[in-house]
Nucleic acid binder design. Structure first.
Lengths: 235, 235
DNA sequence: CCGGCAAGGTGGTAGGACCACTATGGCCTG
DNA sequence: CAGGCCATAGTGGTCCTACCACCTTGCCGG
């Protein structure tokens, strides 16, 4: 009796689980090259088509990386690799879910900013300042948005928790912010945003975690409240 | 000149983006049925194989759902659908990344517990108590783990932010907790865990958000610190 | 009127053929 | 002898066709 195939779900799903299992058990190390699609298909007793679907699935999840002409490799399995898909959530969420996402972001961003205030190095602080001044030196919404993103990304990095930074990155994905910011900034929120960023910066310079936490929470909270009113007005 | 195909990346990747775009633009509503694989392939000018890979990718991301013999449907795009993949991160993370994940969980869990303390209803509180007593009534680690999960899940639900609850669900996935808890509980941490759960419960009954926040943070922090020492000992 | 059965439609699997890209090694040139 | 070029084999990417498993629908007979 060959019981290698418990017959649960589709063969592709099984293949996904098996490869995931191999990585989980340490039989496949980060960065390691996998057998070819053809060999893998034979090993698991499925067709190449199904195996390709499994590989594609693990690729979009950030677990595997396929290099055309070279082979299939396990990613480094770092936070950035695995949490890239988090952006999809932000991009496809709508209505009340956007508020919930901003609430999560408020919690994490304020924590990250507080941590950054305690740990940030002079070099990192200089980088933050660079984006702050660049942001204040233009009126082009696109440029402002780019530096705004970089500003918060730098702070998240300084917090020292790559996983948290990766999640925040996803919660601030370009399309997500573009959708929300668009309306927000149309109401002349530029000045307020500048003040809030300045407050965050001051707290970082002073290495004052509590002030940083409060400033960041207020910053995200502003947008959150605005979005809340927008949604209730529509209803 | 037909410029529908900007020729960037693989055709499958393009198909993924296009379908995602259709949903983002509202051309595909949650729950709606898509054309058949064969028709979709024709529409986007690619082969059925490539289209299937794209569909499979969006399926594992929780965006689409394929029902054998019936058709392909857009999910409700709720937090639970889209954040299911978050568990993969927890399952494949190792070493320092586990600590970072626990740090994120500590932040979110403490916030969720605080929110729950303010909002929890008598019914929900009764449910929490059910799992608490069930947890204390046995010594079977498996049963304890199951009720432990349910205990925190109920609290996260009571917090009223489904997105946050879904993320916490992923951060507490069975395999993740099994891996960490295994060693943790072996050191006779049962009693301590019970006391911490009792403290969280007391704060919920008292509707005291600050106490709830502190209790939850301490609860997760305990495990976090234990894991930290484990990792430094190995080094 | 209702239950069951048959046919068509749909996703799931398989296998083959060919294309596009990469890497490697030997060969030719300077 | 050293260096760069190029043929070649190997790999993922794409396409096609055929068939299977499952669901849905609607017709047919009781």
């Amino acid at each position: 009796m060959d019981e290698t195939a418990p017959q649960k779900g589709t063969v592709t799903q099984r293949a996904i689980e098996q490869i995931k299992g191999m990585i989980g058990e340490g039989r496949l190390e980060p960065g390691q090259r996998l057998p070819t699609e053809r060999d893998l298909a034979v090993q698991l007793g499925i067709s190449r088509s199904s195996m390709r679907e499994a590989i594609r699935a693990l690729t979009v999840l950030g677990v595997l990386e396929a290099r055309h002409g070279s082979g299939i490799y396990v990613t480094q399995l770092e936070a950035g690799d695995l949490l890239e898909t988090f952006g999809v959530v932000a991009d496809l969420s709508r209505g009340p879910q956007l508020v919930e996402l901003l609430e999560v972001r408020r919690v994490l961003e304020s924590t990250a900013t507080a941590l950054a205030a305690a740990r940030i190095t002079p070099d990192q602080l200089a980088e933050v300042e660079k984006h702050l001044t660049a942001m204040n030196a233009t009126d082009d919404p696109e440029v402002i948005l780019a530096h705004d993103l970089a500003f918060h990304r730098e702070i998240a990095t300084a917090a020292g928790n790559d996983t948290m930074a990766a999640i925040l990155e996803g919660l601030s994905s370009r399309t997500f912010r573009a959708r929300v910011w668009r309306g927000y900034q149309e109401e002349g929120a530029f000045e307020r945003t500048r003040r809030e960023h300045a407050a965050i910066h001051r707290a970082l310079v002073a290495h004052d975690p509590e002030a940083a936490r409060a400033a960041a929470a207020a910053h995200v909270g502003e947008v959150e409240q605005w979005l809340r009113t927008q949604l209730s007005d529509q209803a």
